[in-house]
């Protein structure tokens, strides 16, 4: 099975070497097409005017912020259940990228909100959920950073990621409930009532472009992480060769 063939980091690095240029090319093409469509093809919205063009980056960024967490959750299952050696590499490197996309979704959402709502920030159900998601990403990244041993950190982060994944629907539901309780349903919603095909096509192309961008960045970051662990193992080996007595103490956590 291909899934297990690439459990070997060296083989995975070779695969990345082959796939990455193609993926990058596709990503650039998709972005060129998506940006052209969203600026020159898509009409302005009768309600939102030209500001609808912010949607073409806001919606894909929001979509990726959720997709990235799903990938982290699946990777965490990979760490805990299947013990796939690359799973925690994938989970660790996805977190900063997911945080970046979540940040983009927040920034574009609030830049859209200023002309539409009159303020940069509204405690809208969507924006609030995304903010909570950002906090979860940042917490996970901090947890990764505070633990020295990558294997232990990977398992701890996997537990937290899965607990978060179970809680995310509950958080979403309760934030929606809280929002309807405290605010009348706003006329102008971030998703809009119905999506016209003229708007849908650029949105879809941009979503594909963002997804490709995510995979390019994720593969690059995974390659870095594999190299980092290699460096770590080699340093530990060098240290244990230099000081044979402390070898047992230092070499053990490397595995």
């Amino acid at each position: 099975m291909a899934f297990w063939d690439y459990a070997n980091p060296t083989r995975f690095l070779k695969l990345v070497q082959v796939v990455l240029p193609w993926l990058t090319g596709l990503c650039v093409v998709a972005f060129a097409a998506g940006l052209y469509m969203s600026f020159f093809v898509a009409p302005e919205d009768y309600q939102q005017g030209q500001t609808v063009r912010i949607m073409y980056i806001h919606v894909p960024a929001a979509w990726l912020s959720m997709m990235c967490y799903s990938i982290m959750a699946v990777s965490s299952l990979g760490t805990l259940v299947w013990k796939h050696p690359l799973a925690d590499v994938s989970a660790k490197t996805a977190a900063p990228i997911g945080a970046a996309f979540t940040f983009m979704a927040l920034v574009t959402g609030s830049l859209w909100g200023k002309p539409m709502w009159g303020t940069y920030w509204v405690w809208d159900a969507r924006l609030t959920s995304v903010l909570v998601l950002l906090i979860m990403y940042l917490g996970l990244m901090t947890l990764w950073r505070t633990m020295d041993d990558p294997i232990k950190a990977g398992k701890a982060a996997a537990v937290l990621t899965l607990a978060g994944a179970l809680n995310l629907p509950v958080i979403k539901f309760s934030v929606d409930w809280w929002n309807t309780l405290h605010q009348p349903a706003s006329v102008m919603r971030l998703d809009g009532p119905t999506i016209h095909p003229d708007i849908l096509w650029p949105l879809l192309v941009m979503a594909v472009a963002f997804t490709l961008l995510f995979f390019v960045l994720h593969l690059m970051a995974m390659r870095n992480e594999i190299l980092r662990r290699r460096v770590r193992t080699l340093r530990l080996r060098a240290a244990s060769a230099a000081h044979p007595r402390s070898a047992v103490a230092t070499a053990q956590p490397a595995e």
Partner: peptide, 14 residues
């Protein structure tokens, strides 16, 4: 339109 600054700012920040 009138909100060009916001549109360009969001694309720029991304």
């Amino acid at each position: 339109g009138p909100h060009a600054g916001f549109i360009l700012a969001s694309y720029g920040l991304c």
